[in-house]
């Protein structure tokens, strides 16, 4: 039987000091699908995805990537194995140029051919990055920085891409642009994507599955369709 899950989160709990902020959460991320993780501020979404990626220790439970345990594995190992993460708030190196930022995404890639191909893909997806390649990342607009942050992750050649609130702080027009880019990336590169969001309106229509967290616990895990009903959705917040 072929297992269709690229990432399995099994009863994962995370603590901040003595306080449990993520409590026994389980879900699967299916291949070539977009999973949306929703929840109000402080629900534990960011802590959960950061812990899965190796930025924060997991107190209990297990994470499996391609059926292999990766619980508390280093971010370096995750990146090497095709698991990339785009943090909240424009994850770029502000004092470095766009080109230098993108090249830092190839820390573990030695083949020049691969680097050229990935650079070409990123430039096709985000032509603005090509135009601004000598510009310092910190001088670009919020939307452009977000595109660069996604571009850095794509340079790593991921199979699984986790984006933590990619539309936070962006103008409505840019929100749609970023969400459309993510869908395009999923379709053209065949990636599996996890989007952590508070902007339900923009992200729900593109999701294949939804997980909702409330004060560190999972309160919904299923299809996005039932949540199109606003009243139903609000039951989980």
């Amino acid at each position: 039987m072929i297992n269709n899950a690229i990432l399995k989160v099994l009863d994962v709990s995370v603590d901040h000091g003595n306080r449990r902020v993520v409590d026994s959460i389980s879900f699967d991320v299916l291949r070539n699908k977009i999973l949306l993780v929703l929840g109000h501020n402080g629900a534990g979404k960011t802590t959960l995805v950061r812990s899965i990626f190796g930025l924060h220790p997991i107190a209990a439970g297990e994470v499996q990537y391609n059926d292999k345990p990766i619980t508390n594995r280093s971010t370096e190992e995750n990146v090497k194995n095709g698991f990339s993460f785009v943090p909240q708030g424009h994850g770029v190196f502000r004092s470095l140029t766009v080109e230098e930022n993108l090249m830092l995404g190839t820390t573990h890639v030695s083949e020049q051919k691969k680097i050229r191909e990935r650079l070409e893909t990123v430039r096709e997806l985000f032509p603005i990055l090509s135009e601004r390649r000598a510009q310092k990342a910190g001088t670009m607009s919020g939307g452009q920085q977000q595109m660069l942050a996604i571009g850095i992750a794509l340079m790593q050649g991921p199979d699984l891409l986790v984006l933590d609130e990619p539309t936070i702080g962006l103008a409505p027009r840019l929100v749609n642009q970023v969400v459309e880019s993510v869908v395009k990336i999923k379709e053209t590169l065949g990636l599996s994507v996890v989007i952590v969001e508070q902007n339900i309106q923009a992200s729900l229509p593109v999701a294949d599955g939804v997980v909702i967290l409330k004060t560190g616990r999972k309160v919904y895990d299923g299809a996005p369709a039932p949540l199109a009903d606003h009243n139903k959705l609000m039951e989980y917040f």
């Binding site: 930025l55 971010t75 370096e76 990146v79 090497k80 994850g91 190196f93 502000r94 230098e100 830092l104």
Partner: peptide, 22 residues
């Protein structure tokens, strides 16, 4: 390469970890 890793860490330590720099 190490020079660029050092500059990256000086700019944003969290991002340096996220891009897989040891």
């Amino acid at each position: 390469a190490y020079g660029s890793y050092i500059r990256a860490m000086q700019d944003n330590m969290l991002m340096a970890k996220i891009v897989g720099i040891n």
